[in-house]
Simulated assay, not measured.
Amino acid sequence: MSIFRFFRPFFGYWSRRLYSYKSLCGASDIDGKSIADKVLQEIKVEVDEWVDAGGKKPKLISILVGENPSSKIYIERMIKTGKRVGIDIEILHFEADISQVDLLKNIQKLNDDPDVDGILVQFPVSKHISEREVCRAVVPSKDVDGFHPYNIGRLALNSKGMIPATALGVKELIVRSQIPTFCKNAVVIGRSKHIGLPIALLLHSDENNDFPGLDLTTTICHRYTQPAELKRYTKNADIVVSSAGVPGLVTKDMIKPGACVIDVGITRVKVDHEKFKFVGDVDYESVREVAGYITPVPGGVGPMTVAMIMKNTFNAAKKLLRLEERESEIKGRVAEINKNRVEEKENDMYTRNRTTPSTYNSRGKDLSFGNPVL
């Protein structure tokens, strides 16, 4: 691996030539659905082996507050996917006017329930509820969305933990599509703590870590990045990931020929007086004329996010069991140590009583003080 890393910079010229060639031929679609299917097949095999070996069937609880149509569609897709891989998924539905205190109490009940392996809160929630407090309420070991500060912190340190599902999905799309990343430039548009920032953390981090990154020189742009500056950054980028939620934000003139464009943004727009459709941040038809690789919306990042939720849920189930076994093992060791200490103490007292010379003479005089014993 080290030899390969040494020679990779010398492949830069041919990599650029390949990117230019791809742009002449038009972009290749990164089929998120196809890649997600492969990931789900792998998860199903692991879950089946786990259950056959006596493990508990993983269980995920999805919390929905209100009647958000996009959240409902997302949950339906998750339930269908869960059945496919062998993960039980249940919905906990609350009215939009539920108080924050009551919502947090219900989350705590799920935290304490040993039958629940993963907890997923559908965002957005009602305006009177703090999303930050909700994210903090879910115990890190069951936080399959990876939004708890503990999990975000471990991601920032390149340590293993619950990785935010969308960010993990973007990484898998890039890796499984064999997009070159070493010594390349990336731009992430959007700095949300749930999507944009975790994506940037995965793209920029060192691959020689607890959780390997992609070694990309990464720039984050956001709502206050001036349009001219945004274009300057994206024009120099080999990989552009947009998660701003602004339809048509990324246009053809902003993309370097042959670049990889990952569209994370998804917005429900009205196309008729009764019809709606989902669109991304990227002007798909024009950008694909210049880009080398591009994800469609829908059918790109979305299926991968669901697949990564399944992966995180299974990992949570395995981790929870390991923690329970570890706790039981520790308790057993502590009990054994305490028992040994008691036995050693008793033996030590017995030995001292047997070996300590008497301080009294045959007439009952205390030799240590020179006085007779009264």
Rank of each mutant, 00 (worst) to 15 (best):
N209W: 11
D206P: 02
D348N: 09
L103G: 05
N185D: 01
V175Y: 04
I119N: 09
E42N: 12
N185Y: 00
V116Y: 04
F278S: 07
R136Q: 13
R322Q: 07
L203N: 07
T305F: 01
P372Q: 10
I98G: 07
S141F: 12
A335H: 07
N347H: 11
K339H: 15
R232S: 00
G54L: 03
V279S: 13
S99E: 10
N353C: 13
S34G: 11
R132G: 08
I255T: 09
G54M: 14
G66N: 03
D31W: 06
L216P: 00
D283Y: 02
T217Y: 00
S15G: 06
F147A: 12
S368P: 04
D97S: 10
T305P: 05
V187I: 06
V373T: 13
E336Q: 15
D48F: 05
H194A: 13
F314E: 09
K83D: 03
K193C: 12
K193W: 08
T355F: 08
A53T: 02
P124K: 14
H204I: 06
R84S: 13
D238R: 02
R77S: 14
G118D: 10
D112G: 07
T359F: 04
T305K: 02
T267S: 05
H148N: 06
T351A: 15
N208G: 07
T305R: 02
K365E: 10
I75C: 10
V373Y: 11
I75Y: 13
D102L: 04
S141T: 11
I152R: 03
R341H: 13
V125H: 06
A228D: 08
V246Y: 01
G213K: 06
N347A: 14
C25D: 07
Q178N: 15
G196K: 05
I179S: 01
D117T: 03
L18E: 11
I330W: 09
E329D: 11
V301L: 07
N209R: 15
F123M: 13
D348T: 11
I63D: 01
F7D: 05
G213E: 07
N361M: 04
T217F: 04
K345T: 13
I107G: 04
R8V: 03
E76D: 14
L173E: 02
S23T: 05
A27F: 12
M254F: 01
D31M: 05
H222S: 00
E42Q: 14
